[in-house]
Nucleic acid binder design. Structure first.
Lengths: 334, 334
DNA sequence: TCTCCAATCGAAAGCGCTTTACATGCGCAC
DNA sequence: GTGCGCATGTAAAGCGCTTTCGATTGGAGA
């Protein structure tokens, strides 16, 4: 391994001067030139551990996926969010460190992150595990899809999304509208359900108890179960607003299996606009979350925090607008 | 920041003893106990940079996505592969470092990786960019979906996949079979096309020039273009084997748009079995690559290399079996 | 009681880099 | 010729940890 000592020997300068030349500090042009030439010639590569040790700055950002996200990196929603985050962070020369979480306890994850000396942390999850809050006292942190009063966070405007969905349904003549909710301990689940109820009230529509079913943690299995419950009702809804595309897709599927037609008999609106949404039959009308933008904004918040050595405990929340994507799963009622 | 010096002061032992206790080296039970207690009490967290500097071992594995993979982490195929890789690497306490590649040149990526001192590198891409080979002389490396004579690599048994596809089509009475190829500078593209030709020959079927079209880099746009060319033929194929699901989905879509029925008029088989495949209409019959397994096997190879300080230049290639997933996009010819 | 050995611990060097505080040498004005 | 200030370079300490090798200790055996 070639070090600055080798460069120093080779050029006749001291290691201090070499270090300065490499860091664009003040040295004569002549020295800089000679040193840079030697760097080239000897194939010198700086050692980031040594630098981190000396400067206490790692240029790494830790990425933590919540345990409930089984698919991790490959998650259809959060994967894209992280990609958006990464693109922005890269511009500022940060690398992303995906830490392992098999140690189980969040407590351990938090220790691990500080062990690694990351400059900041982005946490991707939607519920529970408050233990990790401790992190924030130590390392700049930004949360995605999860509110917090201690830190930065970015999430979609879930309530407006619900309103968009209900409005669209009402405009198409629907009044018997059900809602398959995401788990009610998750932030998006709660917000979307709340928005749904508000929007129904705004239209003077009743929120019927039996039209409000829990679909669990946004999986197809959960969506399927919830829809089955809805289908077993004597007085079925004519439209259902589903708080997640995966659930919505499963819900559509099971209603088709039951012999009903989508959207002729029952209309559907999802939430997320994951890639699959446009490919199912009928193509799913849904509320699109801007995943790239969410990731990017999270990166912006985090980098700001890092730069500011933010000890001021500023709480920064960003709500990202959502849009209605009209496709084929909603039918106008005669 | 609390260091081993603090622990040493607090317990009365030297930093050497503290270090040993923390690393399960030989110290008395009494010392170990006192030290571990102090660690707990003072909330000591080791500093990985210092340790890496001293041991020359970072416990990080660098992850590099090829530039041609626009979607990066969110890629429907490679995202899952990396997730499989991660799961295995985690078991051995490695963290994954996704390095930024905006610096452009592979040359730079390679420097960056050695700058970071990662213990190993996994490269995810399917073509070109040979510059990165240099890496392998420095850092243990494993490639995914890309052959190399210098290193470890894992990929699916593409040729067998093609055979599976062709056999299935032939069994269903098809003889006029076209192939939309992945770009012929990519390894999977070449292999699948080769396998296709071989299989056709085995069945005594001609490989017609105009039935072999290039779909480019596995995108929907490319698949669409290629299919349009096939549809413009006077003598159309009755089945097309598409070297990638994204392309296949687009191809099916455009033939439906053209007024033809799938699979009644034209049957389709894809390759990959990405998540969307089962949701399109008709559900796509395809050759499934075992993404988790590919990732896991890549991790196994890499960790072996790292452990062996492999200077023996062993070339380790693993070919992962593929399976035919029958769904609805292939129709038996009358 | 004395010797000797094994077990246990610690001093110190070193990993590669940054940074402060100071030394050196130069040109310039007087 | 003297003195001054400035530009440039360097010595050395320090970041937190590992590891070698020698010092110390306690106890077993004679």
């Amino acid at each position: 391994m070639v070090t600055i000592y080798d460069i120093a020997d080779h050029t006749g300068y001291s290691i201090a001067t070499v270090s300065k030349a490499l860091n664009n500090k003040k040295v004569s042009e002549k020295a800089r030139r000679k040193i840079l030439d030697a760097v080239e010639e000897l194939h010198y590569t700086p050692n980031s551990s040594a630098r981190t040790l000396a400067t206490n700055k790692s240029w790494m950002i830790g990425v933590v996926f919540g345990e409930n996200l089984g698919s991790g990196i490959a998650h259809p929603f959060f994967g894209q969010v992280i990609e958006g985050f990464k693109k922005h962070a890269e511009l500022y020369n940060y690398d992303l460190l995906f830490v392992s979480r098999h140690m189980g306890l969040q407590q351990e994850t938090y220790k691990h992150l500080s062990h690694r000396g990351v400059d900041g942390v982005v946490i991707v999850q939607s519920h529970g595990e408050d233990e990790i809050k401790k992190l924030d006292h130590m390392i700049p942190t930004v949360y995605i899809d999860r509110p917090t009063n201690e830190s930065g966070t970015v999430y979609s405007d879930n309530q407006s999304g619900s309103r968009l969905a209900v409005n669209h349904l009402v405009e198409n003549g629907h009044t018997k509208i059900a809602h398959i909710m995401g788990n009610q301990t998750t932030f998006p689940g709660i917000e979307r359900a709340t928005g749904f109820k508000k929007a129904m009230h705004e239209h003077g529509l009743p929120v019927r108890e039996e039209y409000l079913v829990d679909g669990g943690f946004y999986s197809q299995a959960g969506g399927r179960e919830a829809m089955i419950r809805l289908l077993s009702l004597k007085d079925k809804p004519t439209a259902v607003y589903v708080g997640g595309d995966e659930m919505a897709i499963a819900a559509m599927k099971v209603t088709k299996e039951s012999g009903l037609k989508v959207p002729e008999d029952i209309s559907f609106i999802g939430f997320d606009d994951i890639k699959i949404a446009q490919h199912v039959e009928p193509a799913l009308t849904t509320i699109r979350q801007d995943k790239e933008l969410i990731g990017q904004q999270a990166a912006i918040i985090l980098l700001d925090k890092i730069a500011a050595k933010d000890t001021t405990r500023i709480v920064n929340k960003k709500m990202i607008p959502v849009t209605l994507i009209k496709r084929e799963s909603v039918k106008r009622l005669a």
